[in-house]
Amino acid sequence: MLSKKQARAFFLGGTLVTFLIFIGLTIYSFSKGNDQSNHENITESVVRGKKIWESNNCMGCHTLLGEGAYYAPELTKVIDRLNMKYNGQGEEVIKSILMSPVPWQPNGRKMVAYEMTEQEAEDVVEFFRWIGEIDLNGFDRIVSPLAKEDNNN
């Protein structure tokens, strides 16, 4: 029968081993050749776009990379999707929504009117463009019909 000492050794040993493996896998994931996060294409504009994304808590309604609040659409590959819907005008549509002084309300669900400047809206679009180029292990094909078509061709 298991003793208390053995149980403690199981807890401490198991924790230590799994945590060391976890650290090792983290280093492996971001090492050269294994990193698929599109890190090399981050520009100043993308960083500014990310800051705007965070400072307005866009994730409090939308999802990005599948993470967020499920109240408003997933924005991974959003440019591709809107390009399909608006004849290649996806980026312009996004910018007009972000710069609008009145709330955008598709199907009655309201978005905050952010009244961004053209530069800010452009930075957010750059951020979305960068997000759209990340290798997501197939998730992009699920959230974007265009990516799905590309993949099938």
């Binding site: 698929q36 996060s37 990340i134 997501l136 292990n137 998730f139």
Partner: peptide
């Protein structure tokens, strides 16, 4: 949590 956020497939 790492399957589809842009990190290596090993997490799958």
């Amino acid at each position: 949590h790492y399957y589809y956020i842009g990190v290596n497939k090993i997490w799958l």
